[in-house]
Amino acid sequence: MSVSTLIHAPLPLAHWLADAAVDALIDEADLSPKPALVDRRGTGAHHDLHLGLMHASALALWPCFKEMAEAALALGEVGLPLREALGRIGREGERAMLATTGGVNTHRGAIWALGLLVAARALGEPGEDASAVAARAGRIALIDDRFAPRQPDSHGLQVQRRYGARGAREQAQSGFPAVLGHGLPQLRASRSRGAGEQNARLDALLAIMATLDDTCVLWRAGPQGLHAMQQGARAILDAGGSASLAGRRRLRELDASLLALNASPGARRLAGGLPVPR
């Protein structure tokens, strides 16, 4: 076999999916300027995170995503064996993440969301659209993992009890409605207007932020913070999006508002799994 053949040989599907998942996490971290989030400008509302740490964490998760895809390919169907395999692999991935970051939670939510999507895509057919992959991911997420540790006092569950907000788990179980109903349509609309890829992706994130009952923001800043996030994101889009001068000014205002409230949007976890087909 020639060197040229080796270089151009197609990657196994599990490797390709792991590459795509890690690329998504790195692209999400690099996307700037994100309101109150780690990006190329700084650490946002976080004191224990920085861009280099986000990159290192994403790269450390490559084996996790590859093994999730391989498990889906080996088992071949949605069911309890696959759900529990994904849970086990995800917990191993979380340990690898924490070892890399010195105990800082950089991507726990992304392991859940992207892991489901990687497995769902591995089970699908070439050329499937995002809604089919998301629906299959939702079916996987609805299955109870008997071995998952129970965390009755987690921040997400406390917020759900206090405010009735749906968290990342429910978003996944419903087939990622915030992504399909708001993020992807806005991404396509901004692209069609010639906003440029970075601005289109920012607009997609903002469209999710404008509608999501974000449990991370509710935990940090309560209903006041959630209202500031949703209304601020909507104001940017109404002003013309992040590619417009008026939208950029609104974006700076939202950034300052959320930083003052110490509110860091968890919507990035969903946007990190956003498919970006051309």
Rank of each mutant, 00 (worst) to 15 (best):
A21D: 07
V22G: 06
V22C: 14
V22A: 12
A24C: 13
I26N: 08
I26H: 04
I26D: 06
D27H: 12
E28K: 13
E28A: 03
E28H: 06
A29R: 03
A29C: 12
A29K: 04
D30A: 12
D30N: 15
D30F: 10
L31T: 00
S32N: 14
P33W: 14
K34R: 09
K34G: 13
K34A: 07
K34D: 07
K34C: 04
P35N: 11
P35V: 12
A36H: 01
V38N: 02
D39R: 10
R40Q: 15
R41G: 09
G42R: 11
G44C: 08
G44E: 07
G44S: 03
A45L: 07
A45C: 11
H46R: 02
H47K: 13
L49S: 04
H50T: 01
L51M: 03
L51T: 10
G52W: 09
G52A: 09
G52L: 10
L59I: 09
A60P: 08
A60R: 00
L61D: 01
W62E: 13
W62M: 11
P63A: 04
P63D: 01
P63G: 07
P63Y: 13
C64A: 11
C64Q: 03
F65D: 07
M68Y: 10
M68T: 11
E70N: 09
A72D: 13
L73P: 13
L73Y: 04
L73D: 06
L73F: 02
A74V: 05
A74P: 09
A74G: 09
G76H: 10
G76E: 12
G76D: 15
E77M: 11
V78C: 08
L80D: 06
P81T: 09
P81H: 02
L82Q: 04
L82W: 09
R83E: 03
E84V: 12
E84W: 10
E84A: 08
A85Q: 08
A85K: 05
A85D: 14
L86I: 01
L86E: 00
G87A: 15
G87K: 03
R88K: 15
G90I: 01
R91N: 06
E92I: 11
G93H: 10
G93W: 02
E94G: 01
A96P: 01
A96K: 00
M97D: 00
L98M: 13
L98I: 00
T100G: 10
T101M: 07
V104M: 06
V104I: 15
V104T: 15
T106C: 07
T106N: 05
T106I: 06
H107C: 03
R108V: 13
R108D: 03
R108M: 13
R108K: 15
G109I: 02
A110V: 06
A110I: 03
A110R: 03
W112P: 07
A113Q: 06
G115Q: 13
G115R: 08
G115W: 07
G115E: 05
G115I: 04
L117S: 04
V118E: 01
A119T: 03
A119E: 06
A120W: 03
A120K: 01
R121T: 14
A122G: 08
A122P: 09
L123M: 10
G124A: 12
P126C: 11
P126N: 11
A130H: 09
S131G: 09
S131A: 11
V133L: 05
V133M: 04
A134Q: 10
A135H: 12
A135L: 11
R136C: 10
A137G: 00
G138T: 11
R139A: 15
R139E: 12
R139V: 07
I140Q: 01
A141E: 04
A141I: 04
A141H: 02
